[in-house]
Design a protein around this nucleic acid. Structure first.
Lengths: 193, 193
DNA sequence: GTCTATAGGACGATAGAC
DNA sequence: GTCTATCGTCCTATAGAC
C-alpha cells in the first residue's frame, strides 16, 4: 500500500464523512490530497470502490482496542461508567467514524448495512457483550447495544444544536457532563441516583 | 399556495430525506411531480430555497399535536410509557421528519440548526417538558430531551441494521418491542423493572 | 403556469504522454 | 505513478414561446 493511496483514503474519509457521498467529488478529494483527479483512478477503479475502501477501513474494529481491560474493573457500576466515558471519548475523537455511521444508517444498502452490523456491533458484542449481560440480565443485548450506541453518538453529534436549545447551558458541550448524564440514566433511569 | 407547489414540496421532502440534498436533482423532483425541471423555478427561486421550504414545513411543530392530553394520565410511569409509545409511532410514521433531522444534524449550518432546535426541541419542551421535569427532577431537562430523541430516532432508524446483527430476533422490528424496551430502560435503568 | 431549448459549468471516467 | 486533455453526461439556472 503506497503512501499516496493512504493519503487519498484519509482525505476521502474526511470529505465523505463531512459532505456525504454525493456531496464529495473526485476532484475535491484530489485537490485536498495534492494531486489531480485522474491520479485517483490509478489507485481505485472508481468512486464507489474508493468509498467502500474508506468504509471498510473506518468501520472496522474501532471499538475493540479502546475498550480492552474493562472487565478488570470489579464494581459493575464503575465498569459501566468507564465504558460510557470511553465510548463518548471515542465518538468525539473519531468524528469520521461517527458521521459515516449515521450516513450509512441513512443511505447504506443491505450489503453495506450487513458489514456495518458485523464490524461495529459484532466488535462491540465481543468487547462489552459479557459486561452488559451481567449488568443488565433483564434486557435484550442487541436492543441495549443499540440504545447505548444511539445515546452516545446522538449526544455527541447533538452538541452542534444544544447551544441553540432554549435553556441551554455551556457545560452541555463537555464530554464529562454528557458521559455522566448517560451513565446516570442507564444505571438508575429517570428517577436518578 | 397552489396545489402544484404543494406536490413539489411533498416530492422534494421525500427525495431530500431519502437521498440527501446533493443526491437529489431538480430534474428527479420534477419528474416525480409530473412536470418539467424548469417549472419548479416558477414556484421556488432556486434549489436551496426549495430545500429550506421543505425543512420549515417538515420540522415545524410535528410533536405538539401528537402529544396532547398526555398530562391527563395521572400515573407518572404510565405517562412516560404513553409518551415513548407515541414518539416511537411518530418517528416511524414520519420517516421524512426523522431522516431530515439526522441529515440536518450532519450537514446543517448554524442558522438551520438554530431553527431546528427551536422548532423541534422548543415544541417538545412545550408539550412534555413539564412531565419530564416532574418525572425526572434530578436530570437536566435539555440533556434528557436529547436522550429521549436519540433513543427513539436511533432505534427506529436502526431497524434497518438490526436484522444483520449477531443474535438478531424478528421482534426487534416491532414498534411495541422497541417502545417497551426504551420505556423500561428510561424508568429503571439497566437493572430492569 | 408550464413548456422547449439552451447556456454554462461540474461531474465521473478514459486515453495517452512522460 | 502522475500528468494534461478530453469525452459524454448530468447538473442548476435562465430565456422566451404559448
Amino acid at each position: 500500500m503506497s503512501s499516496t493511496s493512504s493519503r487519498m483514503l484519509e482525505v476521502a474519509a474526511q470529505q465523505f464523512a463531512e459532505k456525504g457521498y454525493s456531496g464529495t467529488s473526485m476532484r475535491s478529494i484530489a485537490t485536498a490530497t495534492g494531486t489531480t483527479q485522474a491520479a485517483i483512478y490509478h489507485h481505485f477503479p472508481n468512486k464507489e470502490a474508493l468509498y467502500l475502501s474508506v468504509l471498510s477501513l473506518q468501520l472496522k474494529e474501532k471499538t475493540g482496542a479502546a475498550l480492552e481491560g474493562l472487565d478488570q474493573i470489579k464494581d459493575p457500576e464503575q465498569c459501566l461508567r468507564e465504558l460510557i466515558f470511553r465510548l463518548v471519548r471515542l465518538a468525539e475523537e473519531d468524528e469520521q467514524f461517527r458521521q459515516l455511521y449515521f450516513r450509512e444508517l441513512l443511505e447504506g444498502n443491505e450489503e453495506r448495512l450487513a458489514t456495518l452490523a458485523e464490524n461495529v456491533f459484532g466488535g462491540l458484542l465481543d468487547s462489552v457483550g459479557g459486561l452488559l449481560n451481567k449488568l443488565a440480565p433483564r434486557f435484550d443485548l442487541n436492543l441495549l447495544l443499540l440504545s447505548v450506541a444511539g445515546l452516545v453518538c446522538h449526544h455527541v453529534e447533538a452538541r452542534k444544536i444544544s447551544p441553540f436549545m432554549p435553556g441551554s447551558e455551556p457545560d452541555h458541550q463537555e464530554l464529562d457532563t454528557l458521559s455522566e448524564h448517560i451513565t446516570k440514566l442507564l444505571l438508575y433511569g429517570v428517577r436518578g441516583a
